[in-house]
Amino acid sequence: DIIVVALYDYEAIHHEDLSFQKGDQMVVLEESGEWWKARSLATRKEGYIPSNYVARVDS
């Protein structure tokens, strides 16, 4: 799995977006363009995230 960590807070604009806080970790489910589908490890919610707001966690 690709794990990313939030670099900034993000408040969902559309209902399919995923809100998150700086430091939150998410599993990337699908990478396509600038918006990635991800699942929050904390809340288990899924939605689209702006890929420029996150960084990959080296395992």
Rank of each mutant, 00 (worst) to 15 (best):
I3K: 05
G33P: 05
E46P: 02
S40E: 07
R56P: 10
E30H: 10
A12Y: 02
D24G: 03
W36C: 09
I3H: 06
P50R: 06
Y48I: 07
V54N: 00
A55V: 14
V27Q: 10
N52I: 08
Y53E: 02
R56D: 04
I13C: 14
R39Q: 09
E46W: 06
D24T: 05
S51Y: 10
Q25T: 11
S19E: 06
F20P: 00
A38M: 04
V54Y: 02
L7Y: 03
V5R: 06
E11I: 15
I13R: 13
L18S: 00
I13G: 08
D1V: 14
R56M: 10
E11W: 10
R39G: 03
L7E: 03
L41M: 10
A55R: 13
E46K: 05
I49W: 01
V5F: 08
V57I: 14
L29Y: 07
Y53S: 09
E34D: 14
H14D: 09
A12G: 11
D58C: 12
A38I: 05
D17V: 09
A6R: 00
Q25A: 09
L29F: 08
W36M: 14
R39D: 01
S51N: 08
K22T: 08
D24R: 01
H15W: 13
F20A: 02
D1C: 15
G33M: 04
V54F: 13
Y53N: 04
R56I: 12
H15I: 13
K37C: 12
R44E: 12
Y48N: 09
W36G: 02
V27K: 09
D9N: 10
D1F: 14
T43W: 03
E34M: 14
S40D: 09
D58L: 11
R44N: 15
E16V: 08
E11G: 06
Q25L: 15
Y8I: 07
A55T: 13
E30Y: 10
H15D: 15
E16R: 13
D17T: 08
I3S: 03
Y53W: 07
V54T: 04
S51D: 03
Y8D: 06
S32R: 14
A12K: 06
Y8E: 08
R44G: 15
L29H: 04
E46R: 04
M26I: 05
Y10F: 14
F20G: 01
I2R: 11
M26V: 01
Q21C: 14
H14E: 07
G33N: 06
D58Q: 11
D1T: 13
D24P: 00
